[in-house]
Nucleic acid binder design. Structure first.
Lengths: 224, 224
DNA sequence: CGACAGCTTATTGTATACAAATGCCATTCG
DNA sequence: CGAATGGCATTTGTATACAATAAGCTGTCG
């Protein structure tokens, strides 16, 4: 997409994630156009994309609303994510290259370093975590799977939590990544899939717990 | 969506499915607008939807092309479909109501009747087949799952085949549906999921075989 | 007091004109 | 002769005006 349309998309999306646009509230194209400093045309484009990603829903008469997520919806998304990521891991185990494995090891080492230092660097952890997972998806070599996974991975951020994951959880992620790497080394797809399923489900429970006991606002990605 | 936008969507989609728009060929918004008898605005809307559904892809400089599917891509879609439908079946087993079960039995009886008569009525079979599966999805009660499944279910039609499935395959579908119903009766989610996986994978192999030996043009939905 | 009809206003859908970007081709220079 | 560059043609992106539709309100009637 081009400039204005992308700006609108990013802007609206961030307003939803930050809570600036309240869950369930109606959103009017013209109001968003003013907020984004563009005309309605690119706003409409952006809304269609956000609708496809289920950040926005439309009622029967085409009015748009910010999607409102219950914890059940989130668990649903995580369940699908676990299934899809496990599937990706299984496919990846059969196809991954030496180079890709090396890159995964690199990112896993980096994210360990990010939380081992005296001042844990959570954004750095999340960044390398994301890259680690993206290589699995790359190795899985399925565009369709990738696009589906994108949908469920981006979603949890809507229920935001201020509390960063405790270090214990981040370390577990690191160790689970290690186990995943060993499974890949052995080309054991079932093992990889099982580790991945457990990895995502643990992340969900950590997330749900953090969310239920903490209500402050902040932003964070899933540390899976 | 409203009138013009919907018409454009349906029209373009059917042109892709019928082969009127060749796989891999570039498509220009203005040309489509003329073909559909609307302006570019609703055509652009339609293209965005088709792009999300992977019927259309866009290159790095925003030009649109009809997606071209290899048999590998199709197997990929079927693999995902099998996984998602199995998941749906598992969820449905835990939630399905008496009424929903009754409706499934009705549709299964109807589709049996469609192929048992002296003149097999394949469109009728496909119709009840579709409804049968839609009830499972309804019982699974996950919007996200439903929207994902829609994507992979609609896709196989792009590689069209003239040969209707042979009656043997259609009868097998009927019997597999029966087994699914028993699994639901027993609230056995794992059983239901296993039957469903086998059901979809058999459908894929029947489809692949029909496609590899038959090249004529026609239209048909998946008889899964 | 409630509900319904008709009008008014708000919101989205569509067409069109114009701007920006991209690709293509020819020409030129090394 | 080949590669690079410039300009022209094609295609997509954006803004805006207007049309269609849905929602809300008000006044009237049962």
């Amino acid at each position: 997409m081009s400039r204005a349309s992308d700006r609108a998309y990013d802007h609206i999306r961030s307003m939803i994630l930050s809570g600036e646009l309240q869950s369930g509230s109606q959103i009017r194209e013209e109001a968003l156009a003013e907020l984004c400093g563009v005309s309605r045309t690119p706003v409409r484009d952006a809304l269609r994309r956000l609708e496809a990603e289920m950040f926005v829903r439309r009622n029967e008469s085409q009015r748009s609303f910010v999607a409102d997520w219950s914890l059940d919806d989130l668990e649903d998304a995580f369940q699908l994510r676990a299934m899809l990521e496990a599937h990706a891991a299984k496919r990846a185990a059969a196809r991954i290259s030496r180079d890709q494995l090396a890159r995964m090891r690199h990112h896993n080492a980096q994210l360990k370093q990010a939380i081992d230092s005296s001042r844990p660097d959570v954004p750095k952890f999340l960044d390398h975590n994301r890259l680690f997972h993206s290589i699995i998806l790359e190795a899985a070599a399925s565009d369709r799977l990738a696009s589906m996974l994108l949908q469920v991975t981006e979603q949890p951020v809507v229920l935001r939590t201020a509390r960063q994951y405790d270090l214990e959880n981040l370390r577990r992620s690191h160790h689970e990544h290690d186990e995943l790497l060993i499974a890949f080394d052995n080309r054991d797809g079932d093992w990889a899939a099982a580790v991945m399923t457990a990895h995502i489900r643990r992340a969900f429970h950590a997330y749900a717990e953090a969310h239920s006991t903490d209500t402050e606002v902040g932003k964070s990605n899933m540390a899976a």
